[in-house]
Design a protein around this nucleic acid. Structure first.
Lengths: 261, 261
DNA sequence: TCTGCTCTGTAACCGACAACACAGATAAGA
DNA sequence: TCTTATCTGTGTTGTCGGTTACAGAGCAGA
């Protein structure tokens, strides 16, 4: 199950396809992104300050494994005990209520780091994480994190920054949910999803999500989401196809997202 | 305006009244909490690991000032450039939309630390903070934080833990808002507000908030809040008086807070 | 090509909560 | 004590979005 982090990993779609590499590295495409000995970490912003040697050291203590579509990474019964680095595939982090309704906290793309909640000593942590594609993760144990990462100021700062950003994004979502009508929230969410994406020369961005998945992020139903999406489409702001959304006019969407009624 | 952090500060209500001191110190009431030379920091969980000398060192670089009721601590025009420690009084952190509606992110009590958003390099930070009572804050600059706090693993870990907890609480609120009806959210919020409070021998806890302020936390209107509060009162779960709420049956409230309809 | 699944569009009904509109109640000051 | 501002209680009406219920559409495998 737990295989060494390396080797068979960096296959096809990592280079141009989805731009999950940190920006510094994009501007310097000298590194061929192939058979480097440490695949887990080299592309992760968190470790951007480290030398190759240091990276390798950390990499050695980060075993990795694959998850099949639908497989749970953690849950109530399998509480978090590690920090995860997403290498390939996609992971959905979500919560469920007693009666089965769910709200998804995030849909993570390669390069993302998650599982920070282990820091708070997993009291109540009702988060689930599931692979929504064939996925490869590598994981660092709590003690490794505390001893090797937080004790290194360069990384400690980045961790804090990362958590701070998460707080900022959650606060944004919270006020959106509380104060804005569905259409604005939808626009806002789509723009947010588009952000990390590289946009084509035309300014278009493609998001690979179904209405159902979007609804999970919005905290609303699939039906309402479809309705709102049709609305956006009829305004010419997006184009749709099965499981795929193309944003045609990001500025207009951004404007819409600050509408209050 | 900016006075040295000390001297005239530790007056009446710090000791028993509101239990904002970290638990370790409560169990050890040897320190009389009077004219110690470092008032800002000694009671803050973040610095619990530090020796008195180290505390004093940090204290020296933390100027403090008072804010009058209604005064803004930061806003758009006065963006965050520091980490604040709340010594006395209360602060409300909130966001506003274009049309003037507001959602309050938190109401902070003495001992709280806030302003972590400076970590993310204040791009979009639409948070406001206002004193809702006569308030005394002391502040640490960004550079101080990065150089002296994050570089110290003991503090770095606590900062990360603190941010992690904030993430957890925000995720909780987000799902509450998305998936639970008002009454459950109200119960949940009251219980959350009661948590840090010491409860009397009868199990009762008092919360000093108006319906208006509660509504701000709930993301709803004052009227709806009043209605729901009446409901709780008629069930015998709370007792009310002007600006004051007494929780009579925390377990029952907790149960209510997980209701889904 | 046919079968079946998942994804998307639409429509009628209904319910929780917002908006608006007052009235009484409590506290602070003059 | 009287005045005034701030809180709190409650009713009426409107609406956004949830619910339920289908139907068509794209795609996958037999």
């Amino acid at each position: 199950m737990i295989s060494e982090c390396g080797a068979n990993v960096v296959a096809a779609p990592l280079s141009g396809q989805r731009p999950w590499a940190p920006t510094q590295r994009e501007s310097n495409p000298l590194v061929p992104a192939t058979d480097e000995p440490f695949n887990c970490l080299s592309a992760v912003e968190l470790f951007a300050d480290l030398s190759p040697d240091e990276l390798a050291a950390i990499d050695r203590m980060a075993p990795s494994r694959t998850y099949r579509t639908g497989e749970l990474v953690f849950s109530q019964s399998q509480p978090v005990h590690a920090l995860f680095v997403l290498q390939s595939g996609r992971v959905r982090v979500f919560r469920v209520t007693e009666d089965g309704k769910a709200l998804t906290m995030a849909i993570l793309e390669p390069g993302a780091v998650f599982g920070e909640m282990m820091l708070v000593g997993q009291r109540m942590y009702d988060n689930y994480a599931e692979a929504i594609e064939e996925t490869l993760l590598c994981e660092l144990s709590v003690t490794d994190v505390e001893q090797h990462l937080l004790s290194d100021p360069r990384i400690a700062i980045r961790i804090s920054r990362h958590l701070g950003e998460q707080v900022a994004r959650l606060e944004e979502r919270l006020t959106d949910l509380a104060l804005r009508p569905l259409l604005a929230r939808l626009a806002s969410t789509l723009v947010r999803l588009a952000e990390p994406q590289r946009r084509s020369r035309t300014g278009h961005v493609t998001i690979r999500l179904t209405h159902e998945q979007l609804a999970g992020l919005l905290g609303t139903t699939r039906e309402s989401t479809s309705k709102a999406m049709s609305d956006l489409a009829s305004r010419g702001l997006i184009r749709q196809s099965r499981g795929r959304i193309v944003l045609l006019d990001v500025p207009a969407m951004t404007a819409l997202s600050t509408a209050t009624a």
